[in-house]
């Protein structure tokens, strides 16, 4: 039925000037609009101010303690810290046991989490239509949301009690690895998804076997994405304290034995925090940790941003 030709004139009406929206209403609407924008700017400003407040106050307090010894000596004992503090000097010693411990823990955790994370990420990507792969992806998401302290309990139950019979590097790195794993799985899948389908098809059309397509085409062309994901995962676990409290405890000396306790920068901060004589060291260690973590964080972002093919 062609109704358009039956348009009824009585249905049509145009605006008369009395229908104008009154100045009062317009003014109040514009005022609300402006107030809302001011609110948006105000609250955003508060958020940003928080970033500067936290980072700024840390820098202001922590930079003065950072010196060469900070990176070469182990943490001082309470007594020498107290002596230095009472005579107004810089606290002797540094956090080298924590730095090396953190590197040790994270390296070991990466060695466990990175290969598995990438393999699982590739698996999910390759089988994305399968229900099982979707379940694996959901499990990765759930693991990502598990509080770090719970991961600490798990590593305690799995490693500290039955295997190393005490706090150990191994237990700590297992805890960190469990935290890294889902991050790497998801970032691997996401960066593989960014590889254009045509690239894969071109390789397959040339008769390239499946495993070579993955190893020679998919992984190399998403390499920077994978690296970005790994760096981000490292930056996330580097600052973790809670799970390490339940697994590696801390160590006043540098330790390389995998079954022995080790220190880490966040653990040292926790230790300094609980010791009133070490206040100056808290801030310098915190600045160091935050600087390291944020640089890694920004680096991963930069790498990910560059990967656009």
């Amino acid at each position: 039925m062609d109704q358009t030709t039956t348009l009824n004139k009585k249905y049509i009406s145009t605006l008369s000037d009395k229908d104008d929206i009154g100045n009062l209403l317009i003014r109040s609407r514009k005022l609300k609009d402006r107030l809302f924008k001011i609110a948006a700017m105000f609250f955003s400003f508060i958020t940003i101010a928080m970033v500067f407040l936290i980072i700024g106050s840390l820098l202001a307090k922590g930079l003065k303690q950072i010196n060469w010894a900070f990176f070469t000596q182990v943490a001082p004992d309470t007594f020498s810290a107290m002596m230095a503090k009472s005579s107004g000097q810089v606290i002797p010693g540094g956090i080298v046991n924590g730095i090396l411990g953190s590197i040790y823990l994270v390296a070991l955790a990466s060695a466990m989490a990175v290969p598995f994370g990438i393999l699982i990420g590739v698996y999910i990507y390759e089988n994305s239509k399968k229900r099982y792969a979707a379940i694996i992806r959901d499990i990765a998401d759930i693991l990502q949301g598990v509080p770090s302290i719970v991961i600490g309990i798990i590593a305690y139950i799995w490693i500290v009690v039955p295997l190393t019979k005490g706090y150990s590097v191994f237990a700590g790195s297992v805890a960190l690895a469990i935290m890294m794993l889902p991050l790497i799985v998801r970032s691997t899948e996401e960066s593989l998804k960014m590889v254009p389908e045509t690239l894969k098809e071109a390789a397959i059309a040339l008769g390239t076997p499946y495993y070579k397509v993955i190893l020679r085409v998919l992984i190399p062309s998403s390499f920077s994405g994978l690296m970005g994901g790994i760096l981000l995962a490292i930056s996330r676990v580097l600052g973790e304290t809670a799970p390490l409290m339940l697994t590696t405890l801390g160590n006043p000396q540098v330790n390389w034995h995998i079954e022995k306790p080790v220190s880490a920068v966040p653990l040292l901060i926790w230790q300094f925090y609980n010791d009133p004589n070490m206040v100056d060291l808290i801030w310098s260690s915190a600045v160091f940790l935050m600087g390291f973590v944020l640089i890694l964080n920004l680096a991963s972002r930069w790498i990910c941003a560059k990967k656009k093919i």
């Binding site: 062609d2 358009t4 030709t5 348009l7 004139k9 049509i12 009406s13 145009t14």
Partner: peptide, 14 residues
């Protein structure tokens, strides 16, 4: 075509 017909109708008033 329907939209065009409609526009031609509408110009009676708009």
């Amino acid at each position: 075509a329907k939209i065009e017909d409609l526009l031609v109708e509408l110009k009676q008033e708009y």
